[in-house]
């Protein structure tokens, strides 16, 4: 079971959205992390076979991703998806089950099972247009699993889910990753940190780092600092460095800073996390990214 992509490039005119990406994926959960516009969705679409590459090849066990055989083993949740206005949750599932080639009886059974799995069994006969964002997202996750896929591609699956639903979703994905390839993209660091076996960080259409949580956190050795200062000094540090956390403690302010150099005389070097790494790569390029941590 291998999903291999090699030299994958996508260009829209002069703009290169994905630039010469290569990787071999085997069983497990892969987390694709990056800011908006990093090229995550484009890569996901190409891996799902719904968008052509400009250059490069993508194959699952040497079968092209555009083949019917590949679509048989694919589960895909796009970043945003719609539904026909008259559809109830059950209709939506049965419709996609037919498109995935499930016979009626099997489709009904899978639909019931999956709607229960995402806690939508009571809403099965409710119109989708009455659903909240989180409910729609859970329905999207359920449809992706209709054909028990070997390759599960989930683009921003946790968007709109509340904390309880996110925890349930993470547990579900961890289980699913045991016997299939799961690729999920997000800009929420904690989602991938806890479930992904391999984390891919994407920026400007390229992978800027790959590895497991420990390996990536290790890259931050000597770059994460904590210091306690007064408010005036803290403001100065905030203005000149990337600060991942600020906590007020009585008279003092405790700062966690990501920087190549020591930000303050009394700063102490501490162990880095994935959040620190994210901020290290993305904060200077786009300050908005820190809002998503």
């Amino acid at each position: 079971m291998e999903l291999v992509f090699s030299g994958v490039t996508k260009k829209y005119g002069d703009k290169t959205v994905c630039d010469n990406l290569s990787m071999k994926m085997t069983k497990g959960v892969y987390g694709l992390l990056g800011a908006n516009g990093a090229g995550k969705t484009t890569l996901m679409r190409m891996l799902a076979g719904v968008l052509d590459t400009t250059e490069g090849t993508i194959a699952y066990d040497s079968f092209d991703v555009k083949s019917e055989d590949y679509r048989n083993i694919l589960g895909y949740l796009p970043q945003s998806f719609g539904y026909y206005p008259e559809f109830k949750a059950r209709d939506f599932m049965l419709y996609l089950a037919a498109l995935k080639g499930l016979e009626k009886k099997e489709a009904r059974e899978r639909t019931k099972e999956l709607l229960a799995l995402v806690s939508l069994e009571k809403e099965a006969r409710q119109k989708i247009r009455t659903f909240s964002g989180g409910m729609k997202q859970r329905l999207g996750i359920a449809q992706a699993m209709l054909n028990d896929p070997k390759v599960l591609i989930l683009d921003e699956p946790t968007a709109g889910l509340d904390p309880k639903e996110r925890i349930r979703f993470r547990n579900l994905i961890s289980r699913l990753g045991n016997d299939r390839i799961v690729l999920l993209s997000t800009h929420i660091v904690s989602d991938v940190e806890q479930i992904a076996d391999t984390i891919l960080v994407m920026k400007d259409g390229r992978f800027i780092c790959k590895g497991n949580r420990e390996e990536l956190a290790g890259e931050m050795t000597g770059k994460v600092w904590e210091c306690q200062t007064d408010e005036t000094e803290a403001e100065k540090i905030c203005a000149s460095h990337s600060v991942t956390n600020i906590r007020k403690e009585e008279e003092k302010v405790l700062l966690r800073v990501v920087s190549d150099r020591k930000p303050h005389l009394e700063a102490v070097c501490v162990k880095g996390t994935l959040e620190d790494l994210y901020l290290y790569y993305f904060s200077s390029a786009n300050p908005m990214d820190t809002d998503m941590l």
Binding site: R71, P78, G82, Y83, Y84, L96, L99, K100, G101
Partner: peptide, 22 residues
């Protein structure tokens, strides 16, 4: 051509019986 109107085409494209067959 309602798939495009209602944002279903990406899901339909990824299925065994793809959008052109639908």
């Amino acid at each position: 051509i309602k798939s495009g109107w209602w944002g279903m085409q990406e899901l339909e494209l990824s299925c065994r019986y793809s959008l052109n067959q639908v």
